[in-house]
Amino acid sequence: MALEAGSDAPDFELLATPDQRVSLSEFHGPVVLIFYPADWSPVCSDELSMFSAAHKLFQARGAQLLGISVDGPWCHEVFKEQRNVAFPLLADCHPKGEVAKTYGVYRDDDGTSERALFVIDSNGKIVWSEVSPVGVNPGADGALRAVEALS
């Protein structure tokens, strides 16, 4: 089961680039975690395009977007560059899917993660989460509203 509103958001440290790590606890404002199954899969690309496009709306509210999938940092680099993803993509690849597992959104049957969104407040609490069917692009409205409700 995916972690729900009210739970503490488990901290993590993941590669954001092949040589640079990022941890959840280093962000002070609200964070939106965007778990998606894989780089290059068509719905993910649309979903990340929407979030990239909406990035400035989140930024204006002091929120940090973070994408996470089980792909490696090298794959993320090329994907980010090609699609101009406007926020970090974290590599949950070693041990594979560990962070997805702690958030309850790892898909054991195909070794990817669910398409899931978590909004985390500045105290590290999950205030909103949503798991969408893998083939459905959830849109950015729910997360944006959850971020707005924090201020």
């Binding site: 649309d46 395009s49 929407m50 496009a53 709306l57 692009n137 849109g139 950015a140 409205d141 944006l144």
Partner: peptide, 12 residues
């Protein structure tokens, strides 16, 4: 328009 689209959950 863009913000209205995001608010409406336009998904691409």
């Amino acid at each position: 328009d863009f913000e209205g689209a995001i608010r409406s959950d336009a998904n691409g």
